Simulated assay, not measured.
Amino acid sequence: MGDFKSLIVWQKSVSLVTEIYHLTEKYPKHEIFGLTSQIRRASVSIPSNISEGHPRRSSNDYIQFLKIARGSLAELETQFLISKNLNFISEEQYQDFDTKFIEIA
């Protein structure tokens, strides 16, 4: 089955988490326990569920973890739209991340 670290989707989602942490450092400080925290948790959930499900013996178990990762990605897409609407990120940043979300999905 190989190591989960060799999966391109896992590698891209880890890179996404890193970018998101850097981006959300610039969010308003009053959002640290709100949107910033939600975005960070949703982003971390994506590669975490991929790696947790990968060594499962059952394909159905693995698929369930991939569905959870996909759900976290949808949550993240929503949070980024809210961030754009609140002017925490620019339209250009939103589009850039949306492209990455589509690629990971």
Results as ranks from 00 to 15, higher is better:
residue 30 H to R: 07
residue 39 I to E: 01
residue 62 Y to D: 00
residue 27 Y to R: 13
residue 90 S to H: 15
residue 71 G to E: 10
residue 90 S to P: 03
residue 54 H to Y: 09
residue 11 Q to G: 09
residue 28 P to I: 15
residue 77 E to N: 10
residue 28 P to E: 11
residue 6 S to H: 13
residue 81 L to Q: 15
residue 39 I to S: 02
residue 71 G to H: 09
residue 72 S to M: 06
residue 26 K to H: 10
residue 34 G to E: 13
residue 23 L to Y: 15
residue 73 L to R: 01
residue 40 R to E: 03
residue 99 T to I: 06
residue 33 F to M: 01
residue 3 D to Q: 06
residue 57 R to V: 04
residue 55 P to D: 06
residue 15 S to L: 06
residue 62 Y to V: 00
residue 70 R to G: 02
residue 82 I to N: 06
residue 60 N to K: 15
residue 82 I to P: 07
residue 43 S to Q: 11
residue 10 W to L: 14
residue 73 L to S: 07
residue 67 K to C: 03
residue 63 I to K: 12
residue 21 Y to N: 12
residue 90 S to G: 11
residue 28 P to R: 15
residue 34 G to L: 08
residue 62 Y to E: 03
residue 35 L to N: 02
residue 57 R to L: 10
residue 56 R to P: 04
residue 35 L to E: 00
residue 79 Q to H: 14
residue 50 I to T: 08
residue 69 A to W: 03
residue 7 L to W: 09
residue 93 Q to S: 14
residue 6 S to V: 07
residue 88 F to H: 10
residue 105 A to P: 00
residue 70 R to N: 12
residue 34 G to K: 09
residue 82 I to K: 12
residue 52 E to H: 07
residue 46 I to T: 03
residue 60 N to W: 04
residue 51 S to Y: 04
residue 11 Q to P: 00
residue 54 H to S: 05
residue 21 Y to A: 09
residue 71 G to C: 02
residue 74 A to W: 01
residue 24 T to F: 02
residue 19 E to W: 02
residue 37 S to P: 06
residue 2 G to L: 08
residue 69 A to K: 14
residue 68 I to F: 07
residue 69 A to E: 03
residue 8 I to V: 10
residue 18 T to I: 12
residue 64 Q to C: 04
residue 54 H to M: 01
residue 15 S to M: 09
residue 70 R to E: 02
residue 58 S to T: 05
residue 57 R to S: 13
residue 29 K to L: 12
residue 71 G to S: 09
residue 3 D to F: 06
residue 20 I to A: 11
residue 15 S to E: 07
residue 53 G to Q: 12
residue 19 E to R: 14
residue 100 K to R: 14
residue 101 F to Q: 09
residue 25 E to K: 13
residue 43 S to W: 11
residue 4 F to C: 05
residue 45 S to I: 02
residue 46 I to E: 09
residue 13 S to C: 02
residue 35 L to P: 10
residue 60 N to A: 11
residue 81 L to N: 14
residue 68 I to Y: 06
residue 90 S to T: 15
residue 82 I to S: 04
residue 23 L to F: 08
residue 7 L to C: 08
residue 47 P to Y: 02
residue 32 I to Y: 15
residue 56 R to C: 08
residue 82 I to Y: 06
residue 101 F to N: 00
residue 87 N to G: 11
residue 47 P to E: 01
residue 68 I to W: 07
residue 51 S to G: 11
residue 10 W to R: 06
residue 45 S to T: 13
residue 25 E to D: 13
residue 17 V to M: 08
residue 29 K to D: 10
residue 96 D to Q: 13
residue 71 G to Q: 05
residue 78 T to E: 03
residue 86 L to T: 11
residue 92 E to D: 14
residue 75 E to F: 05
residue 25 E to T: 10
residue 77 E to C: 06
residue 65 F to G: 08
residue 51 S to E: 05
residue 53 G to K: 13
residue 60 N to E: 04
residue 100 K to C: 03
residue 27 Y to H: 02
residue 43 S to T: 15
residue 4 F to G: 00
residue 89 I to A: 08
residue 70 R to D: 11
residue 77 E to P: 01
residue 36 T to A: 11
residue 41 R to K: 08
residue 69 A to D: 03
residue 105 A to I: 02
residue 97 F to N: 04
residue 70 R to Y: 09
residue 26 K to P: 10
residue 93 Q to R: 14
residue 66 L to C: 15
residue 27 Y to K: 03
residue 41 R to C: 12
residue 17 V to S: 12
residue 76 L to N: 00
residue 63 I to N: 15
residue 45 S to P: 06
residue 97 F to W: 07
residue 20 I to D: 07
residue 49 N to R: 11
residue 76 L to W: 04
residue 51 S to I: 04
